[in-house]
């Protein structure tokens, strides 16, 4: 039995080694980005990168190291994908830029979907950012923000964010597709509208070269390298759904003022709490691969070790060239 166990461990090590060599020889040069949504996530942006990396959960770090060796975060992603109420201030961005510079990292600014109010705030931030870093990468999750950058800040480098890549992220997909034609339909559910000729033409017009994907519960599309973009993938949080109404943001308000999508007020409880979600109907069960959580206004599936490993393995072999590691989803 002991011998058997030992053999298994050795086979596993050998397999991981082969994978590592495979990526190396395919010439896939994987870049690593560290995503910090809020300055307090990393000691108010004063910390040392090495020290911050030690805060990544050991099992996640080990999985990454097994597949890719020692990782070097050479990109800092900073900003908000999901909520305009917690957009960073100008000073936060400057501090994040300095942090990136002092740690030899490139800088990417992430932006959320925005109302008219949020659009004006973003526009002000862009006016400042373009003075400091005119070619800054900007992750865009709102068609209006793309249009604004194209027309008013053309020196920025736009990236199409994962919220504008409408691929299905429904955790139920695999369990619902059984029987005849299920493989074919699964491929449809792994498909991506950005791969369509009309969309490629449009995004080319808007200078989009890089797009983002999630590590999907029902498997990453095998043909992503044919889509014609550079591709970044987020781990370990996949986005299922997001909205302006925030369950945690309205906690503490008078009942009549709760659950307002248009609320300008935010008690910022997402900085202090997250929610574990359990399906009353037991249709969406947490598994060894993922669990459902809500942070602020967004529901995520958090990828656990087996899924994370599988996704990263696929990413390396399919042509993803940038992994964005999320310290925190919001």
């Amino acid at each position: 039995m002991t011998y058997y166990k030992k053999s298994l461990t050795e086979i596993k090590k050998l397999f991981d080694g082969i994978l590592h060599l495979y990526f190396y020889h395919r010439g896939v040069s994987m870049k690593w980005a560290l995503y910090i949504p809020y300055r307090n996530n990393i000691g108010n942006l004063h910390g040392d990168l090495k020290e911050i990396i030690t805060k990544i959960p050991a099992h996640e770090l080990n999985t990454i190291k097994e597949l890719f060796g020692e990782i070097n975060f050479n990109q800092l992603y900073f900003g908000q994908e999901f909520c305009e109420r917690i957009l960073p201030k100008k000073k936060d961005i400057i501090d994040a830029l300095n942090f990136a510079h002092s740690n030899n990292m490139q800088f990417t600014f992430i932006t959320p979907y925005v109302t008219e109010t949020g659009l004006i705030k973003l526009q002000q931030l862009f006016i400042e950012l373009v003075k400091i870093k005119s070619d800054c990468e900007i992750v865009i999750n709102d068609w209006g923000v793309l249009y604004l950058i194209f027309n008013e800040f053309p020196s920025f480098t736009p990236i199409l964010g994962r919220l504008l890549n409408k691929m299905w992220r429904d955790p139920r997909i695999k369990s619902y597709l059984k029987g005849k034609n299920s493989d074919k339909i699964l491929k449809t559910y792994q498909g991506c509208g950005l791969a369509a000729p009309g969309m490629k033409k449009l995004l080319n017009k808007f200078n989009i070269k890089r797009i983002e994907i999630d590590n999907l519960i029902h498997g990453v599309n095998e043909n992503i390298s044919d889509w014609g973009y550079q591709i970044s993938m987020y781990v370990p949080y996949g986005c299922i759904t997001t909205g302006r109404m925030c369950i945690l943001g309205s906690w503490g308000l008078e009942k009549k003022d709760k659950f307002k999508a248009t609320s300008k007020f935010c008690s910022q409880q997402c900085r202090f709490y997250s929610l574990n979600l359990y399906d009353q109907n037991k249709e969406v069960k947490n598994t060894k691969d993922w669990e459902i959580i809500q942070k602020g206004n967004t529901i995520f599936y958090k990828q656990l070790e087996p899924m994370l490993k599988n996704g990263l393995t696929q990413a390396g072999s399919l042509g993803v060239d940038r992994i964005i590691y999320q310290f925190d989803p919001i």
Binding site: R169, T241, S274
Partner: peptide, 22 residues
């Protein structure tokens, strides 16, 4: 910005139990 398919029935958003995690 909802990536859930209605083809699998019902809304995905209104049937959760919530556990608060500090």
């Amino acid at each position: 910005h909802c990536y859930v398919s209605h083809a699998f029935g019902g809304a995905f958003c209104s049937r959760w139990n919530y556990e608060l995690v500090e």
